[in-house]
Design a binder for these strands. Structure first.
Lengths: 148, 148
DNA sequence: TTTATACATTTGTATATACAATAATTGTGA
DNA sequence: TCACAATTATTGTATATACAAATGTATAAA
């Protein structure tokens, strides 16, 4: 992805600025692909992320704090994100008996089935996005990103 | 930025998945910093981007299409983005005489003054974000991002 | 000229997200 | 025990963004 061409500018951009823009463009592209992949399932990337987190709990419920901590993109309002998953019947919520301020959220059987299907597509999408990379290049990229 | 630690997971993540997550985390971090830097100026990143594009026109007006093409993050509704800049008196809009379907948008003197000030902070922020990088590493990072 | 089609932007509307205020519960120190 | 602070989640509200429909203008075809 050539930065200058992408934002239709002729003049060269300073290296640091270019890097920042480059990262944004890449992220936008990734988001677009994921968004397109999720469209048939009528679920957002954030909702998908929450489902994965809940599955990762392996039966144990998660409260909102836990979900928030584990989300890739932190949200300011996870309550309503979970609400949307409850409407779809993909997760259930109940008050924590030990500490009634907390809630316990867990993925339903229906949610697990849906997630399994969605997961396949999302993994394929990941493969496609990164198909141009050799393993060594991925390692290198991650090392560079670690510096940020 | 360590991915596993950041999303509080113990188990290692497959390299491709990790790379995708890594890019998201990095982007979130960059956005947060920019957002914080822009807060005192009461302007959004998108609005800032439009102002820069208009300044880049060097006096020539831009129509909505041009702005859209040049934006780093494309928006579905640039009209209302421009509206907000008009309210602040940072840009002006008039109907194109040659083709009255088009509009001509240009940055005002007040917009230029504001942008100059904001630009300074934004450049500083860029420097801070990328302070851990040697020039060669930035080149390398851009080369890797080009593969996406 | 009339009709149709394409173009450029705006507007309506639904959804998403951010942020602050509120509510409910629990923990803690006097 | 009581008052007060801390914790956890929810709700209200404002703003942002996505997407489709509508508006107004220009171009082309019949």
């Amino acid at each position: 992805m050539n930065v200058e061409a992408h934002i239709k500018t002729e003049k060269p951009i300073p290296l640091k600025s270019k890097t920042i823009i480059h990262l944004s463009l890449v992220q936008n592209k990734i988001n677009e692909r994921f968004h397109a992949a999720l469209k048939p399932f009528d679920i957002s990337l954030q909702q998908f992320n929450v489902l994965r987190i809940l599955r990762g709990q392996k039966g144990a419920p998660a409260n909102l704090n836990t979900i928030n901590e584990r989300m890739v993109t932190k949200m300011s309002n996870t309550t309503r994100l979970v609400d949307k998953l409850i409407i779809k019947d993909f997760v259930a919520r109940q008050i924590c008996e030990n500490n009634r301020r907390k809630v316990e959220i867990f993925i339903t059987e229906k949610g697990l089935v849906a997630l399994a299907e969605i997961d396949t597509i999302m993994n394929q999408t990941e493969q496609v996005i990164l198909e141009g990379f050799k393993e060594s290049e991925l390692v290198q990229l991650n090392e560079l990103l670690d510096k940020l």
